[in-house]
């Protein structure tokens, strides 16, 4: 979906969401991945809020409440505490926030490559699937009938 509800987010909401995204999925040199606040990923997140825009805005309001003021003004430790308190909550709005961030993070080319995945759509190349070990079925073949024969089907 390329819904564009970006205009729904105020500049303050965008700024808060970006800082929050960095706590949700931080950049990692060890794993060779950007954070969810990376400019390209974050741009994708904001553009793709779609059906979750309302819930994401609601969580940002909760974040401001948890921060006891402006989230952007908190130092790193305070901001992390506020972010984690918010993310520790349960419910559909927090799930929507997670979905909004993760659906974009886990389609970024750099993230895909770091996971050893090809950055592409499934179609048209598809995927290969091992045939598997069909000899395993020998243990089941030839067992006595298990289904109940009624109405004389095989009589």
């Amino acid at each position: 979906m390329t819904d564009d509800p970006a205009s729904d987010l105020t500049p303050i909401e965008r700024r808060d969401l970006r800082r929050l995204a960095a706590f949700m999925v931080p950049a990692s040199a060890d794993y060779g991945v950007p954070g969810a606040d990376d400019a390209m990923i974050f741009g994708d997140i904001v553009r793709s809020l779609g059906r979750d825009a309302g819930d994401v805005r609601a969580t940002l309001a909760l974040l401001r409440e948890a921060a006891g003021g402006d989230f952007a003004d908190l130092d790193e430790a305070q901001a992390e505490t506020a972010a984690m308190a918010l993310l520790g909550r349960e419910g559909p709005a927090i799930e929507a926030l997670g979905r909004a961030v993760l659906q974009c993070y886990y389609r970024d080319d750099r993230v895909m490559r770091a996971l050893g995945l090809e950055p592409r759509s499934p179609f048209p190349k598809g995927h290969a699937l091992d045939p598997g070990d069909w000899s395993l079925l020998d243990a089941v073949r030839g067992r006595p009938r298990m289904w109940r024969d009624v109405d004389g089907g095989t009589a």
């Binding site: 979906m1 819904d3 059906r51 979905r99 389609r107 759509s121 499934p122 179609f123």
Partner: peptide, 14 residues
């Protein structure tokens, strides 16, 4: 269908 695009998983929620 979603599998044509990079947003194939996101569209399952849309």
């Amino acid at each position: 269908f979603p599998s044509n695009g990079r947003d194939w998983e996101a569209r399952r929620y849309a």
